[in-house]
Design a protein around this nucleic acid. Structure first.
Lengths: 334, 334
DNA sequence: TTGTATGCGTTATCAT
DNA sequence: ATGATAACGCATACAA
């Protein structure tokens, strides 16, 4: 047997379809008595409104899609959780689009919004792709997390990556380090660019020359950190500390150092960025920057909601507070 | 300006809407010349069919939803990836529903299929909830991964958890261990039940008495393993090896052992299950069971596709081969 | 307060 | 090979 439609319910209740529709969408417009009656029938028949038809009629899906660069990176989990809870609260569905570290997959999902399958997009991707650009010019609701794009005035929420990076570096410099290597990603996307700037800025502030040979580029993952560390060690350059632009890279780097017989932090200090779950469990526990992930997610959704409802956004490009988490890998406790 | 509809395209091309629809869905039914022409116009106007309308008409969404117990557990990432690639290949969208370890959220998503928002469900959840049961009785397409439910004849794909668990235990016993603790989860869901059975079966086969005090129940996560190990150590019972029913628990257990000043594997061997990414990076690298995650995902989707198309399924409850991965944590190399 | 009628953008069934 | 038109299930402007 087929699922009952609004028509079936109307027949059974002895009223018109409009009344059924109203008790569901605008209950105040209908007389309490009939409302009761209709609700009763609805329950009896176990009627479920056809969401597709409703969406076609209203031209809205009450769903948003979140573009995640790589769902395996636990840094994104907290953000997703924040978006999800807020979306749920507002009666929205959250769809997750995993790019699997292949930015080219993005265009596939951007079609979704153009085909009206979702009402808005939140991008956790660090790339400002051309496809994404067309969305903006065509005025589709879009919010970016993790990075703030300066040229385009896209609503976004993030921490001040440069300041955070500088704080991390200042800590290392205060501990006496002067030869500090930096592991980052290639291509150099937005938040990593800021972190690199913070690295350079901190060095300059302390009159330490910047050595480009100590700056390395690779993949933002354990393997990337491992490989970068390895080639860096092969260069025979002196360095007493490593600042990895992400905790996963920091883990890879530490693994490489250990494989080389070097101790962390005694022979070489290591600091990371993001504070993923593993960072406190790994040995030695990683000194890093903690971002308010859950909060970032929630605020991102709130901004998107405003956008979707054509309401003004108070602070378009919002910066949230970060935290310098000092643990063992920087040698603080020595 | 609004997005063009099929009507707009028809007007611009000087044909009827039916023809436009045909060039998109049944290109063979239309004369090559007009087809060319229409495609040209479509490109010019950048026409995107309204998916909602199409779905309402065809009563299908070409989307499936995957219920994930906890997206933070990397064990599921490989399965998701497998489902995703296969779904993409078949022109289906994959929606991810994260239960955040709260099975109660499941009912929320099950409504989705009842409201025709998706054509099928793949559950990676180990629970056989009542809600899920109603789906089966109402003949909605459903496939389960990670567990095979014996009583219900639900199509599923998994490894033989009991045999794998037994293999792991046999390896430990061969290395000389006789007092082996087992860390598992509470409530005892399906695949964990099988792993426990394998644990017991292996002991019995080697005439080793089963000591219930050595079997511990907790959360399937790093913290759960840590806490369980801690209470186990407090009992002052003798054991020389630990079999954790999941790698995350194994990591937590090893952390607790280290915090107690015990060395792994010298003082206590540890083995896990699932072979998550971290298992090879962690020190000591974890001996574990590798499941063919990607393949499990692919096959799960294929089964679901057959179900959705009312085709027969060759093997309803399918078992895939597993692999015993011997690394450092079991003391093999000593 | 309730009912009637129209349209949302497609696809599918008839015709032609 | 193509066109006219009726659904799909719902929400809403308008009428009563």
């Amino acid at each position: 047997m087929n699922a009952p439609t609004i028509k079936d319910v109307a027949n059974a209740a002895g009223v018109s379809v409009a009344t059924i529709s109203r008790v569901l969408s605008n209950p105040d417009l209908v007389k309490p008595a009939t409302k009761e009656h209709v609700l009763q029938i609805i329950k009896e028949m176990n009627y479920q409104p056809n969401v597709l038809a409703r969406q076609l009629r209203t031209q809205t899906t009450r769903a948003v899609i979140v573009i995640v660069p790589n769902i395996e990176n636990s840094f994104f989990h907290g953000i997703l959780s924040g978006i999800g809870t807020e979306a749920e609260r507002q009666g929205y569905q959250m769809l997750i689009a995993d790019l699997k570290s292949q930015p080219s997959l993005e265009k596939h999902y951007i079609e979704a919004i153009k085909q009206r399958q979702v009402d808005g997009i939140i991008s956790l991707s660090a790339n400002m792709t051309q496809k994404l650009e067309t969305l903006i010019t065509e005025r589709y609701p879009l919010v970016m997390v993790v990075q703030c794009v300066p040229n385009y005035k896209i609503p976004s929420v993030s921490i001040d990556n440069m300041a955070a990076s500088k704080a991390l570096m200042t800590h290392l410099i205060r501990l006496g380090h002067r030869e500090i290597a930096h592991l980052t990603v290639s291509p150099l996307q937005m938040p990593y660019q800021d972190r690199l700037n913070g690295y350079i800025s901190a060095l300059e502030e302390h009159k330490i020359p910047v050595d480009n040979e100590l700056i390395s580029y690779g993949e933002p993952a354990i393997k990337g950190g491992y490989d970068q560390m390895w080639t860096l060690l092969a260069k025979q350059k002196k360095f007493t500390a490593v600042f990895a632009a992400g905790d996963t890279m920091a883990i890879g780097a530490m693994k490489a150092l250990k494989d080389q017989g070097l101790r962390v932090p005694e022979d070489c200090a290591v600091v990371g960025f993001d504070d993923i779950d593993l960072s406190s469990v790994w040995e030695p526990a990683i000194t890093t920057i903690r971002q308010p992930k859950e909060m970032m997610g929630r605020i991102a959704f709130q901004k998107l909601l405003a956008l979707m409802q054509n309401e003004p956004i108070a602070v378009s490009q919002e910066y949230l507070p970060y935290e310098l988490v000092i643990r063992e890998s920087c040698g603080y406790f020595l």
